[in-house]
Design a protein around this nucleic acid. Sequence first.
DNA 1: GGAATTGCCGAAAACGGTTTCGCAAATAAA
DNA 2: TTTATTTGCGAAACCGTTTTCGGCAATTCC
Lengths: 337, 337
Amino acid sequence: MSKITIRELAKELGIAVSTVSKALRDSHEISTETKAKVLEVATRLNYIPNLYASSLRRQKSRTIAVVIPEVADSFFSIAINGIEEVAREKGYHVLIYLSHESLERETEILNEFKSGRVDGLMISVTSETCTGNHITAAMNSGLPVVFFDRICEDIQAARVITDDFESGYIATRHLLEKGSLHPVFLSISSTLSINQRREAGFIKALQEAGIPEEKKSIIPCTGSDEQIAAQILQLLEPANRPDGLIASVEKLVPPVYMACQQLGCRIPDDVRVVGFTNLPAAPILQPALTTITQPAFEMGKTAAALLFKGIEKTSFDLSKETKVIPSRLMQRASSGA
Amino acid sequence: MSKITIRELAKELGIAVSTVSKALRDSHEISTETKAKVLEVATRLNYIPNLYASSLRRQKSRTIAVVIPEVADSFFSIAINGIEEVAREKGYHVLIYLSHESLERETEILNEFKSGRVDGLMISVTSETCTGNHITAAMNSGLPVVFFDRICEDIQAARVITDDFESGYIATRHLLEKGSLHPVFLSISSTLSINQRREAGFIKALQEAGIPEEKKSIIPCTGSDEQIAAQILQLLEPANRPDGLIASVEKLVPPVYMACQQLGCRIPDDVRVVGFTNLPAAPILQPALTTITQPAFEMGKTAAALLFKGIEKTSFDLSKETKVIPSRLMQRASSGA
DNA sequence: GGAATTGCCGAAAACGGTTTCGCAAATAAA
DNA sequence: TTTATTTGCGAAACCGTTTTCGGCAATTCC
C-alpha cells in the first residue's frame, strides 16, 4: 500500500493537481460535479493528505503543544483529557512536553517552537519559572500562548486559572471553623503563582481570625520526595504539632498521611487536614480527605478552546483573556466532624 | 523577530544554500572551517530549521504517536514519563492521543498516521480492540509499531509487557496463603489481553489449590463508574461476601474501598484485597493496599527505546521483539497480617 | 451586439529544507 | 608528467500541497 498523493488522484481523474487540491478544500472555484468526482476517487483510494507538505505551504500545522511540569499528577492528567477532547473536535493534534519542574528544560522546549512547529502553546509553568523571557520570546515570534493553572504573573497573556486565593481562604476558614487554632500551610514553592495565591488566602483568613502571624505557620516543603517526607515528619512530631494543616498541592498528601500513621497522629482529632488535590482516592482515605478540588477537566477544555480561538481568529486579542473557574471544597472527615 | 531561513544564512555567508544545509547536518562533504563559520552564523542569528520542510523532504518527522485509552490512570501517566524521557534524549517529539476505550476512535486516530504523520507508534489498545485490522493496516503502510501493556494477541508486533499471568498467579496465591478460601477476581473486560492473562494466573492458582472452579469467582465489572460501583457493592453484601478479592485494574480500587466502608466490611478481616495499581496513595489507604505494582516507567522507557531502534535501524525486525518486565507484589495490610 | 463579468479549470510558482549530480581544484598514484 | 582519485562546494531538482494568476468559454449587462 504505497502512499498516494494528490498527483495520482489528478492522473486518475485526468485533471490538474491544482483542481484536485481546490476540490478537496471545497473551493468555490470548482464545480459541484468535479468536487463530487474528486471526493469519490479520494475516498476510494483512501487518500490522506501529507501533513508536512500542507503545513509547509500554509505555515500552520494544526498542532498545539502542551508543556507541563509532569503528567503523573491528577490535575494535569485530567486537564490533558479536556485538552485532547477539544483538540480532537477541532481536528488538532497535541504534542506533549514535560518540563520536570526545570526552567532550563522549559526554555529548551519553547525555543523549538519558534520554527513554526506548532500553531499554539498551552503551558503550566515550572515552579522555577519566575521570569518568563523564554515565554515572551515565543509569544513575540507570533505564537499564541495560553497559560493554565500555573501562570507567570508578569506576562500579559491569556490565562485559565482557578480561584486559588479564595480556595486558600476557604480552606483555612474551614479549618478554623472546625476548631483548629493554629493551622499551618505547607508551601511547595514561594515563586509559584498558585502557591502564592493559596498562601495569600491562608494569610488573609488567619488575619481575619485575629491569629498572630507567626512565621512558623507557613512551612516550606522542598527538595526530593524523601526530603519532603522528612520535613513533614518533623513538623508532625508531638512536641509542637499543629492542630490543622493545608497541603497546598497533591504531592504533599501522601507524606502527610504517612507521617500521621508513623507518629500515631490522629486525623482529624490531633490535626485537621485539607488538601488541594484531584486524587480519586481522596474519599477512600481513612479518614476521607477534605479537598479543594480543582476543575481540571473544565480548565483543560477552556484553555484549549481559548487557544483555538486565538489561533483561528487573528482579530481576537488573546492576551487580554482571563478565565477563572472556581474550585470546590469537598468536605470530608479529615477536617473534623 | 522574523523567521530566518537557510537561504538567509547562505546570503549572510556568501555561500550556497546546499552548502549551508550540509554544514548544518555535519556532512563529510564540507570542510571543518566552513562548518564552523556556518554554525557560528546560525547560532548568532538563532536559526531554527523548519521542521515541516525537513520532514517533507526526508519523509520523516522525528515525531512519534502514543495512543492510550486514557491518561488519568497512574500506569499510563507514569509510562508517558518514561516515553517522554527517551524521546527527549533522542530528539523526538511525542503526540498524544486518547482512544477513550473506543475502537472507533482508535481506528480514526490510526488512519491519520498513514500519511506519514509520525515515524512510529506506541499503542496500548482499547478494551474493545480484539481484531486489529486498523493496526495491521498502519503497520503495512510501513509504520513501526510497539505495543505496550495492553497488546493485541493476534498481531505479530513488538511488545513491551509485564508478567500479567505470573502476577495474577502470585496475587492469588498470596491471598490463599493469607487465609482466603474463596477469592474472587474482578474482571473489567474479557477481551483485554492483560485482563485475560491476570485471570488465567488467578485460575491456575485456584486449580493448584484444589479449589473447585465456580463460575462466580470471576466477577465482570463493566459499564460506567456508577454501574461498577453498584456491582461491587452488591458483591460485598454480607450474604455471600467473598473472603478475598483481586482488583484487576486501578479503577476498581476506589469502589472496592468505598463499598467496604459503606457496608462496614472490614479489610482484611472480612475480605482480603489485592489491587493491580500504581496509585501513589496505595500505602496511605486504611488499611494500606497490597498491590501488584507495574513497572510503568521502565515499560514506557523500554517501549520507546525499542520503537526508536525500529525506526532508526531498518535492518532491525521490530515485530519479533517481546520484552517482559516483571511486576512486583507490594505486600501491605489489606491482604492480611 | 459588443463589453464586461462570471464560472471553471490548468500551469507554475511558491513553502524551506535536502539530496543528487556535476565541476573544479588539490592531492595521490602510476 | 600523466592519470586517477579525493575534497569542497554550487546549481538545480525534489518532497506534496497550496495559491496565484491567467485563460477560455459561457453568461450577463448596457
